[in-house]
Design a protein around this nucleic acid. Structure first.
Lengths: 165, 165
DNA sequence: CCTCATTCCTTGAAGCCTAAACTATTCCAG
DNA sequence: CTGGAATAGTTTAGGCTTCAAGGAATGAGG
């Protein structure tokens, strides 16, 4: 196809290598932190990140959430939430409750045990994150937070629009 | 100092809320981008991100990589790589080759078909990332890259030391 | 009333992922 | 040489995840 190796190299990437390197670094940071959090959740609480995330979502919504709402907040598929909720219900951490006036929907709520358990996990989790980010100064954290805000907007704008929201 | 709402807010959590918010935003950005990339890889190439990542690792190592090396570079378990390699080998994109002098190890290499296929996917992938990050200015990208470098170091320092490296 | 689109959830198939147990091979110290 | 530690990969059980197909209930028009 191409004339020689140099030509191929020169025109293949129109200069998008910077964005790629940024993305790879972003991914590495997230993967490192996430992996450590998963590992500690397993070690200290014998649980998983998705379970923790689901409990966290319910903890922020004392009135309860439908499976669909949980699915949107966690950014995972609805079928995924079904299985997750089934396991957490079996462990007695959450409960399914029919929503009055709509027999399709159900509300998920933390049980008392679930609230207790999440409080323990949540406190540890917060400490872990602080520990992992301890080497980043408050000023840097502020700058990162702001820049990641821009990044989020950039990505959202490039994404296909959601059905409703 | 004093006993008012401000004080209460200030001491209840030892001040780790900032780190937590930063982490959640970092996670959101990564999840958004990653989800879109997964979706496009499926739509345009009928493949997945782990497959793409494995091909990328092999593309950067023309001499081939052992399963263990791939496992370390992708930061996934070794058992995971076994299955991934099996599927990619079945599709004819990579090949297993015995390593001379060590009957335990094998080298994974891209086949000609694998190289062709990865080149197509890689070009598209690079464009997607550039598209998603188009709303972040070059200056901001530079700052982000640097700050994420600090973050990576901070996390690595807080992590349990690896066996070897 | 119907009917049809929509919403909420579940199921099933397939793939990704980990930890832990296991096999085979290599390396090393005695 | 030989026994045991270390290394390379595989396997297994269980959980996470998606997509696609489908069942049940709701709601809006005719």
């Amino acid at each position: 196809m191409s004339v020689d190796a140099e030509t191929a190299l020169a025109h293949a990437p129109p200069g998008h290598k910077d964005e790629l390197r940024l993305w790879l670094r972003l991914l590495t940071c997230t993967t490192l932190i996430e992996g450590e959090i998963r590992s500690r959740l397993r070690r200290d609480f014998d649980t998983t990140l998705p379970r923790f995330d689901l409990l966290a979502a319910l903890d922020r919504a004392p009135e309860g959430l439908s499976l669909g709402e949980v699915s949107r907040r966690m950014m995972v598929s609805n079928g995924n939430v079904t299985g997750l909720a089934t396991r957490l219900e079996a462990e007695g951490l959450i409960e399914r409750r029919a929503r009055p006036g709509d027999r399709r929907a159900q509300l998920l709520r933390l049980t008392a045990k679930g609230r207790r358990e999440f409080a323990r996990q949540s406190a540890a989790h917060e400490g872990w994150i602080a520990e992992l980010l301890a080497g980043v100064t408050p000023v840097e954290r502020g700058a990162l937070f702001r820049l990641l805000g821009h990044t989020k907007i950039s990505v959202r704008n490039a994404l296909p629009p959601e059905p409703s929201a």
